[in-house]
Amino acid sequence: MRLLILGGTEFAGRAYVEEGLARGWDVSVLNRGTHAAPGGVTALRGDRRAAGGLAAIERGTWDVVVDTWSWAPVAVRDAARALAGRAGRYVYVSTRSVYAFPAEAGADESAPLVEGSPDGADDGAYATIKRGAEIAAVDAFGDRALLVRAGLVLGPYENIGRLPWWLRRIARGGPVLAPGPRDLGLQYIDARDMAGWSLDAAVAGLGGPYNVVSPPGFTTMRELLETCVEITGSDAELRWTDPERILRAGVEPWQDLPIWLPPGEMHGMMHQADVSKALAAGLKCRPVAETVADTWAWLRSIGGVPPQRPDRPQVGLDPEVEASLL
């Protein structure tokens, strides 16, 4: 199998590269070269934002193309059009944010969507941009386009900082503000499980949208944070705190306390999606302990400081705010 990944050097793209190589596929990556390409791939150079930036893929054929683009939909439009006659399937890594806000708890792929345009620019909202890119992929590939609507994505190479922040904070030890309720259910996907399922689905000829995330309640805040304590070998003491007290202090869920959303509308949208369609199509999720352990091992291997996407704000709670709440 010949696999082309548009990107391929960071987080989700890197997971697709490693999955393709593990299968013995012929893997090529197209990117600007600002990060070194992983070993074992054919490195193609091109800036999708620039005139002539797709020249490196104007020749050649591929069985599967994976696109993780998160900016102007025109880049997906142009790439998909250029490849439509020379590639079998187009996997676009999208997001569950394309559902109109607020998506109800238990919503499946038939939920209402935001508006989007394949000709859109960078100045739109994230959800609008991703929806426009979905439309661009489908316009070019039809039912050969697989729309991977991911939720919270975790795992090694994470460049958003959510799980790395918790690991680093807990590794420092001492009292740690733990947002309750303890048994609040979490729904996420390890990037490696997303990659494995996506490539299987592409080979099987699947197309259209899929919510690709673990079942609701796959883990809990208690299990996640206690696992972080165990994996890091820390002496951290988790001090569970009521959501109301945290919110009264002006703490922002998801941003100041990554991953966590208090019970309510946002939690229902992010952590209670219907994923029965993907599960029926073979989605399997590894245990949370494996995701945490592998992310910690990766963090330690790079000196403990994770990369940071320049277009995303740094996450994490101000130490003074945490101390005050504690």
Rank of each mutant, 00 (worst) to 15 (best):
V17A: 08
A140F: 01
A133Q: 07
R59L: 09
F11I: 04
A133W: 12
A195M: 11
L261K: 02
A82L: 14
D143V: 05
V251D: 04
S198P: 03
Q187V: 09
V27W: 09
V275A: 13
V288R: 02
L167V: 10
V203H: 10
P310K: 12
G174Q: 13
A249W: 04
G207K: 05
D78M: 06
T219V: 05
G24C: 13
W69Q: 13
G233E: 07
W260F: 06
A121S: 15
L206V: 04
R59W: 08
Y157K: 04
R149S: 06
P215C: 04
T68H: 11
G161M: 07
G196W: 02
E223V: 13
L184D: 09
A36D: 13
R45M: 00
G20F: 03
L167N: 02
T34R: 05
R245V: 14
L317G: 07
I189C: 02
E226F: 13
I160F: 12
W296N: 07
A289S: 15
I246G: 11
S97W: 07
V229W: 07
F141W: 05
D190G: 03
S110I: 00
R49F: 08
G46S: 07
G151D: 08
G303V: 12
G316Y: 06
V315F: 13
V153Y: 06
A105G: 14
I259A: 11
A43W: 09
I259Y: 11
P156I: 05
I129Q: 13
T291P: 06
A105W: 07
V65P: 01
A55T: 08
G161Q: 07
R300T: 14
L199Q: 01
T9Y: 06
A121W: 00
Q255S: 11
L257M: 05
D119I: 01
E237F: 00
E115H: 05
L147V: 08
Y188L: 15
